[in-house]
Amino acid sequence: MADTDDFEFLEIATSGSRRRVPPQLVIGAVIVSVIVGIGMVSVFWTPYDLNTVDVPNQFLRPGSDGYLLGTDKLGRDMTSQIMAGARNSLLVSMISTVASLIPGVLIGLLAAGASPFWQRFISRLTDIGIALPGILVALVLATSLGPGNPTAIIAIMFWFIPTVARVTMGPARQILSRDFVEAAQAYGRPRRFILFRHVLPNIGPLIIVQASVMFALAILIEAALSYLGIGAQRPTPSWGRLLKEAQPLIDKAPYLMIIPGISIMVAVIGFNLLGDGLRTYLDPQQTAKGTG
């Protein structure tokens, strides 16, 4: 087939021009860096000690003197709790995302390069993994391991690894069908080598996008598990745990739920925007359409 698409011509002409940075990417990056910054600061400094009880100052409304986000029922400073909560959320999400990505990508990649039998086998296995309700897995894990951050991380990994494997396998197979892969075989490269040398870098952008979306989901899952009492336990600070503790007081001090709720929401939106922005930015088609 001759390439007769005149639009391709435009692509060649504009390929030298700058890529446009999508606004989602900028907004997402700003939100994410603010949250990461707050989390990092909280390691060294918070306005008040996290666990100092100060009953006389209980249930201060947000904006009270010296307490930007108010205090809880024992007079503990909410600003400090939220800051430290960001740290825990980010830490759990990061560990679980990275710990899922590495085995997930590896399984997906090797499966894509395997014989049809193994491809089918791995596909069925990931189907089963995806079909298992994640919360159920987490509850079972909690009964055997006890609640806490490690349980949350392992539960999230169970949740993510099959998805990552699945998301990697499809595009990897597509790359494997390209001519440069056959060319590499024709100059004697073994299949394993081709997977890491040619396939992995080509699906890299996709994995980066997937990682940022997973990160957002991990924040949500961590909060949900802590809310259910499976994740972080006092004294470990956690947004989900704050939500849980505030629930009985919803009439008396609604801000105790609203503040961690908004924190979770902003973090999730931030990482989703980042993922969406990266998807647009890394899409090779974008260069063709971006400038006219």
Partner: peptide, 8 residues
């Protein structure tokens, strides 16, 4: 040829 503008 490609880029001649014939499709356009």
């Amino acid at each position: 040829e490609s880029g001649s503008g014939k499709t356009m």
